[in-house]
Write a protein that binds this DNA or RNA. Sequence first.
DNA 1: AGGGAATATGTGACCGTTCACAATCCTGGC
DNA 2: GCCAGGATTGTGAACGGTCACATATTCCCT
Lengths: 370, 370
Amino acid sequence: MSVTGHTSPKPTAPAPADAADGPSRHRARSVSIRDVAKVAGVSYQTVSRVINGNSYVRDSTRDRVQAAIAELGFRPNSAARALASGENRSLTVVTSNTTLYGYAATLQGIEEAARAAEFSVGISVLESSAEAHVRAAVDRAADSSGSVIVIAFDHAGTLALQAVPNALPVAAAVETPDTPPDAGQPWVWIDDAEAARSATRYLLELGHPTVHYVAIPSNTHTSRRTAGWHTALAAAGVTAPEPVGAGWDALAGYQAGRRLARDRAVSAVLCGNDDLALGVIRAMHEAGRSIPESVSVVGFDNAPQSAFYTPSLTTVHMDFVGLGRACFSLLHSEIEGSAPIVPHTVGRPELIVRESAGSFNPHPTESRLR
Amino acid sequence: MSVTGHTSPKPTAPAPADAADGPSRHRARSVSIRDVAKVAGVSYQTVSRVINGNSYVRDSTRDRVQAAIAELGFRPNSAARALASGENRSLTVVTSNTTLYGYAATLQGIEEAARAAEFSVGISVLESSAEAHVRAAVDRAADSSGSVIVIAFDHAGTLALQAVPNALPVAAAVETPDTPPDAGQPWVWIDDAEAARSATRYLLELGHPTVHYVAIPSNTHTSRRTAGWHTALAAAGVTAPEPVGAGWDALAGYQAGRRLARDRAVSAVLCGNDDLALGVIRAMHEAGRSIPESVSVVGFDNAPQSAFYTPSLTTVHMDFVGLGRACFSLLHSEIEGSAPIVPHTVGRPELIVRESAGSFNPHPTESRLR
DNA sequence: AGGGAATATGTGACCGTTCACAATCCTGGC
DNA sequence: GCCAGGATTGTGAACGGTCACATATTCCCT
C-alpha cells in the first residue's frame, strides 16, 4: 500500500491537487472516544475505561468497545490526553553533537530506558553555547514535553542545564563534579578520575617516564580527568607535563598530535576520547613515530571502532549506555516522586588493553614515512 | 542559577532537598492564558492574539499583556495548543541504530531543518525488524506526534515505512529505489549506483583486475550499490566476483575481510560503508597484507574519522546531512500542501581520494605481522 | 425478601488553547 | 454630525480526553 494513499500507479495527470470544492481539505476530524462510544452503544467514559485498562468493565462490553475501536481505527489523541490528565510521559534530551560517540551512546541509553517506561523522547540540539542558542534549545525542550534530560558533557550542555526552568523535572548526565554534589541534584556521571588514573597508571607501569595528556574541553576548572591523571602521576613521583587542550574530534586530536610529535620526550599520550586518540596516532604516524614502539597512545570511551584501528586502540571503556539509562531512571523517579534523588556514579571505567600502548622504549628507531 | 534553585555556591550542609511539607509537590496548576488576561486586564482571546503575533492588537495592549506574561512566567501549553488548533508542528524520526554514522548524520540533517522550521523532533528507535517491534515503534511515533520521518536504509526501516498509518504525513530517506518511484512518494535518497560506479571505476583505473565488494544489507533484491558496482565492472569488461554480504559495523567488515584475505587474487575491495572498510583493513593487516600495497580498500560515507585512519580512507562522500534536510523539507511541503511531492535524489556522491587505495601491484611483498 | 458492598456504567465539568462570530471603538470623508 | 469600514476586543463553543461523582446492576449474606 502506498504511503500517500494512492493505490493505483497512475503517473499521468496528477489529480487536481485538492483545489477547491472537494470536501477533502477539511481537517479530517479524527475519530474520537465519543464516536467509538456511539458505535459500541456505550458512554464515552466506558470507552475511556477500556483504552485505559480499567477493570470495572464487563468482558462483553469491553469486547464490543474493542470491536468498535478496531472498526473505526480509533487512536487516542495524545495531546488531549496530556491536556486532560496533566500527565507528561515524555521527555526531551538537550544535547549538542549527536554524532560524537559519547553523546550518541548516552542518547541511546536514555531512549532504551524511556521506551521501556513508555515515555516518548524528543531531542533538542544545542547549536552552540551562545546564550541565545542555549535558551532556544531549552525552551524548545521545555514546551514540547513535560521533562528534560540534559547531556551536559560540555560547556553548552552545562549552560543548558542551568537554564532549565525551575518547575520542570530534569536530570542530567554530567562530567564528574569537582565536589560531591548536594543530595537532590539529579545528576549522574561516570567516574572520570578513576578512568584517568587507571589509564595513567597503566602507562606508567609500562615504564614510561611520564604521560602527556590531550584534554577534551571541560567546564569544571580542573576536570576530574585531568585530576585523575595528575593524581596517578603524583603517586608515581612524576611531575606532570602541561596538558594539551583540544576539542572533541579527530581533527583536534590530529592538531594536538602534531604539536606533541615534535617533542622527542613524548613517549606516552593519554587522550580525552577515542577520536582524539585517533587523530594523535595519525599525527604521530605522519611524523614518522610509530605506535606503540615510539609512542604509546591511550584513549577514553571504547567506541566500537577502536578495536579495529591499526594498531587497535588501548582505551578506557566508559559505559555511556548505562549512563543514559541511569539518567532516565533518575528522571523517572523524580517524576513519580517514588525514590529520593541522589546524584551518583554509574558503572566503573575499565581499561581495555589493546595494541596502541606498549612498554617504554628509550631509543626507538624512527622511520620517516615513505 | 542552579537547577534546584540554589543561587549561592554553598558546599556545606546540603539543603534539605525539598523534603516534605512545602507546597511543592502539588501539580503546579500552570499559569494559563486566562491568568495572564486577568493580570493584564484584557480578555483571554487578546492574550492568545499576542502570543500568536496577531496584528490586530493595539501596541499599548500588547505591551501590557507581554508584561503580564513575563511577570507570571507564562508559557503556552503545547498540548492544549495542538488539541485546539489541530496543528501538529512536530515529527518523530523512526530509525534503527542511531550510533551508525549514516543514520546519525541523517538525523542531524532532519533536526537542523526541523529546528529551522520550528518543528519539534522526537525519535523512535527500531529495536529489530520483528513485526511487533516495528509496529510498536511506528505506533509510538504516530501517537506522539503529527508526522513521521522514516530512515529506511535497512530492512526494519522499510517495514516501518510500510506500517505507517495512511492518514499520517510521512517522508522517508531510503536506499536508491530499483525503479523510479511514482510521483507522490515522499522519498529522498542519495544516488547509490553512481557512488558505487565512481568508486569501482576509480579502482579499475588504478589497474586492479577486478574489484571485490563487501555489501551492507539491502532490502531491494538487487541493491543499487551492487548494481552500480556491476555496471562499472561490466563496462570495463570484467566479470564480477561474488559480493560478500556483511552487516553494518566494523566487526562485520572484519569478518568479511578475513574471508577475503585468504584469497590471494583479491587486490581491491569496495566496502558498503566506512566502518566495514575499517574492519576489512584490519583483517587484511592481520593477514599480513598491507594497504594499499597489497590490497586497495575503498569505503562509502566519508565518516569524519575516515580521514584520520592509518592509512587514511579513500571513500565516497555521501551527504547524509543534506539528505536529512531534504527529507524534512519533503515532509514539510506535504504538511503545508504547498509544493507537490516528488521523490528525488539528493546531492552527488563524491569520491574522496586518500591513501587506502593505490595502483595495482602484481607481486606485493607480503609481510607476516610482527 | 431486604440490605450493603462490589461491580458496571453514565453525566457534567474541566484541561488550556484556538476558532468563529459578534460587539465595540475609532477614524476619516462627506 | 453622521456613517462606512477597518481596527480592536470580547464571548461562547469546540478540541478529545480524564476526573469526580452520581446512578444502576449484581451478587452474596442474613
